[in-house]
Nucleic acid binder design. Sequence first.
DNA 1: CGACAGTATCTGCGCTTGCAGATACTGTCA
DNA 2: TGACAGTATCTGCAAGCGCAGATACTGTCG
Lengths: 166, 166
Amino acid sequence: MLSPVQPNDEFPGPDWTWFESWRGVLFASARVLRIADLDMIEHDGFPLTWFDVLSRLADAGPAGLRMQELEELALFTRGGLTRLVDRIEAARLVQREPVPGDRRGVRVVLTADGRQRYSAALARHGEVIERAFGQRLTSAQHRAIADALWPWWHDADPADTAQDPG
Amino acid sequence: MLSPVQPNDEFPGPDWTWFESWRGVLFASARVLRIADLDMIEHDGFPLTWFDVLSRLADAGPAGLRMQELEELALFTRGGLTRLVDRIEAARLVQREPVPGDRRGVRVVLTADGRQRYSAALARHGEVIERAFGQRLTSAQHRAIADALWPWWHDADPADTAQDPG
DNA sequence: CGACAGTATCTGCGCTTGCAGATACTGTCA
DNA sequence: TGACAGTATCTGCAAGCGCAGATACTGTCG
């Protein structure tokens, strides 16, 4: 998919470049993610989805996050966060605690072990990404990509503006 | 995840740019894919995984593809191709046919309906990607990204060379 | 032909996801 | 206080995914 067109381009309108760039973004992320996920499972014992959650919690400070906040922040999880946290909790990397003054809610916090395992995973993950992605481009290329794609990282939800023709 | 570091960078080594560019690639693909998948389900009645398979078959010509070839080409499917094709076949978009001279194998080919539904989906998909991704960058930016990320699209499996420090 | 390694695809099964509807609690208003 | 809309999270269930082990066929060698 996402290679809707063969070498013998015919579909393209006047400027077809955006499609080649999209294809690059798509393939690069798919391949690098696959490498990183396999590596993390092998060496850290958990997949990227866990790492996603752990990193949000590590960034959040000692109070942790509510389930809703976590769901908004996590990149890889649309639903099913309850059970994802269940699994991570069963592995003793996070812990659910009551929220004072609101008996509906829970806050999810890293355990000491969770923080430690996360740090180790982070260090390794950084190296893996650097090797599989970082070192394959020049600094100028990275700069150009970072500048161009920055809005997607920054925007809360670019989907909202996708309709906007301007 | 994949935002291992907060605004208060401390982790980064001398040149941290590669990480910002990775983050951009990751977020852009995740967000755009989500938009495209939802749109396709709503308007074409099937998800991107189906589109992935259909597009490979459309590119393959009238003889279709063997399951193995399909598995190698498809971007989104690691295993479970048998059942994915089962579902698409149940929807009458593809069809399994015997391979003359090898009773183990099957070739998967598009049905007339499949080809038609694929064309419609392709047209719409192109527009969606253009709106959600293409129009948000300048032509020069797309050119730079396409040139930089081209190897990932081109290489069979960049994972193999990930070790290569050069 | 019979044994056997190799190939192509499928099946069984457990884990993960996604979504709709429960459940439990809060805050407001009469 | 009792009703009720709103919020936070969980549960049930069906669908999808991934992997290990079947199953069915092929080609080779003796």
